[in-house]
Computed example of a mutant assay.
Amino acid sequence: MKRQDIPQDESNLKSANMTEVVYVTDENDNYTTANSIGWDVKKLALDESLELINERIQQAKDDVANNKVSPIIYFMELNKMDFGVLASYVGMWQWTVKRHAKPKTFKTLNDSTLKKYADSFGISVEELKNFDGKS
């Protein structure tokens, strides 16, 4: 693609004040880089991905409200983490984090354990303990 042919279609990148680096050929057919604010195909893919992420966050919130999972699941989804990532942040085994994702087990956690989770999510222990998924 030539530098003058770089797509500059509106996308989520522009609203976040970001650009994407793409490889193009210059006037001498040498490869170089240039910035693009997006292109329609990528915009569709990003929009669909964000929609799926928001659906997962809402489902996690509903599950917390219905006492199916602990608030750990909601904040994990909100921060785009999985069990492996969260386990590495809190310094625990994945199976331990999965146990803590159960409401009954979550209610027994002490404040030092909750602080590890809260710090990983960038919230306070009180926010984590008091999140009920209803607000």
Rank of each mutant, 00 (worst) to 15 (best):
residue 130 N to P: 09
residue 119 D to N: 14
residue 53 I to Y: 12
residue 126 E to L: 12
residue 26 D to L: 01
residue 120 S to V: 05
residue 70 S to I: 01
residue 38 G to F: 04
residue 34 A to E: 05
residue 35 N to K: 14
residue 132 D to I: 02
residue 16 A to H: 11
residue 90 V to G: 03
residue 54 N to I: 06
residue 123 I to K: 00
residue 30 N to C: 13
residue 14 K to E: 13
residue 34 A to I: 03
residue 33 T to W: 15
residue 113 T to R: 08
residue 67 N to C: 11
residue 110 N to W: 15
residue 58 Q to F: 05
residue 28 N to P: 03
residue 3 R to I: 15
residue 44 L to K: 13
residue 51 E to D: 13
residue 81 M to C: 08
residue 109 L to F: 13
residue 55 E to Q: 08
residue 4 Q to K: 07
residue 64 V to Q: 00
residue 123 I to M: 01
residue 94 Q to E: 15
residue 40 D to R: 09
residue 20 E to G: 07
residue 63 D to T: 15
residue 48 E to P: 11
residue 81 M to S: 06
residue 104 K to H: 10
residue 14 K to Y: 09
residue 129 K to G: 05
residue 27 E to R: 11
residue 88 S to K: 08
residue 6 I to C: 01
residue 44 L to T: 08
residue 31 Y to I: 09
residue 34 A to P: 13
residue 55 E to P: 13
residue 40 D to F: 04
residue 57 I to L: 00
residue 134 K to Y: 14
residue 67 N to D: 12
residue 52 L to V: 11
residue 62 D to A: 13
residue 12 N to C: 06
residue 17 N to K: 02
residue 111 D to T: 15
residue 47 D to P: 07
residue 24 V to I: 07
residue 69 V to E: 04
residue 118 A to M: 02
residue 106 F to C: 00
residue 93 W to Y: 12
residue 88 S to L: 08
residue 72 I to P: 03
residue 134 K to R: 05
residue 36 S to K: 03
residue 119 D to F: 07
residue 82 D to A: 10
residue 79 N to Q: 04
